[in-house]
Design a protein around this nucleic acid. Structure first.
Length: 272
DNA sequence: ACTGGATCCTGACTGC
DNA sequence: TGCAGTCAGGATCCAG
């Protein structure tokens, strides 16, 4: 479900309705997510005001009035949205944050690849956050940076682009789309891509992520934002999920291959 | 030091 | 209608 644009869309929706509210009570119905929900998280956040909701890569961070931060990751199938507190529970509704305005922030995650962790104030930065690369929409992510970190990398450019330590939050959909837009074959060893083409790639990653955020993210299967609204960026996919269909530029059929156990879609003619 | 592959889990879909 | 097999937006871990 969620790549960076979907997480950012979720963040904005949540921030509009939850910042300034207090968490009256946290309810955990199933602790076995990717890692167990932190023991004592409920007590730690009870009564705390949510001062801000930030995003780092695909992690959402709820700033709990100086006590610490609640980290939420949506994994592959997670969804976080705002419901009336008495909204009936569905099968995979694992966590609720009951707010002082009568609403609840609810986490539903069928596959349970997501995470909910409590990061107390003053603790050393969590490992999950300390090894993340620059945010793609900041100036730290530029051609010179990408050039530097890829010089000794023989792995395919697409796999490297999807590594969180290289750049934060670029997942499978947007890696495919950005490489198409930049005209780069996803199988090219990263070190073989020169500075000008990396510059093009950086620009396209940024442009595509920005447009996807504007469009409210991409809705495949069942993704909806924090108020239940579907995104519509999927309508503009040029290669993702278009195997065999004509390339929108040259008409050649879009090809599907596997890289790192993930689907890669690309145009053999337009991406060299 | 890198690389590819396996892995966690459930649900949707396809083909027989 | 049922059943087996495949695949999915993520990201860590491990052997080689």
């Amino acid at each position: 479900m969620p790549e960076l644009p979907e997480v950012e869309t979720t963040r904005r929706g949540l921030a509009a309705r939850a910042v300034g509210q207090r968490i009256e009570r946290a309810v955990v119905r199933n602790r076995s997510l990717r890692w167990p929900v932190t023991d004592g998280m409920e007590a730690a956040v009870a009564g705390a005001r949510i001062d801000a909701i930030d995003r780092r890569a695909k992690y959402l961070l709820f700033d709990c009035e100086g006590r610490g931060r609640l980290l939420v990751h949506l994994g592959m199938s997670g969804r976080l949205w705002v419901v009336p507190r008495d909204e009936p529970l569905a099968k995979h509704d694992h966590v609720d944050l009951e707010l002082s305005n009568g609403l609840s922030i609810r986490l539903r995650d069928p596959r349970r690849f997501g995470a909910v962790l409590w990061l107390p104030a003053g603790a050393p930065e969590h490992m999950l956050l300390s090894s993340i690369g620059p945010e793609p929409l900041t100036d730290a992510f530029d051609a010179a940076y990408l050039y530097r970190v890829t010089r000794n990398r023989s792995a395919a450019i697409k796999l490297v682009l999807m590594e969180g330590g290289v750049v934060a939050g670029v997942g499978n959909i947007y890696a495919n789309e950005a490489l198409f837009a930049a005209g780069i074959n996803p199988r090219t060893p990263a070190r073989r891509v020169g500075l000008p083409r990396l510059g093009r790639l950086v620009s396209e990653v940024r442009a595509i992520l920005a447009r996807a955020i504007e469009a409210g993210g991409s809705s495949l299967r069942d993704y909806v934002d924090s108020s239940g609204q579907a995104g519509h960026f999927q309508d503009t996919f040029r290669v993702y999920d278009r195997e065999g269909r004509p390339c929108t530029v040259c008409g050649a059929p879009v090809r599907l291959i596997r890289q790192g156990n993930r689907s890669t879609f690309y145009c053999v003619k337009c991406q060299r």
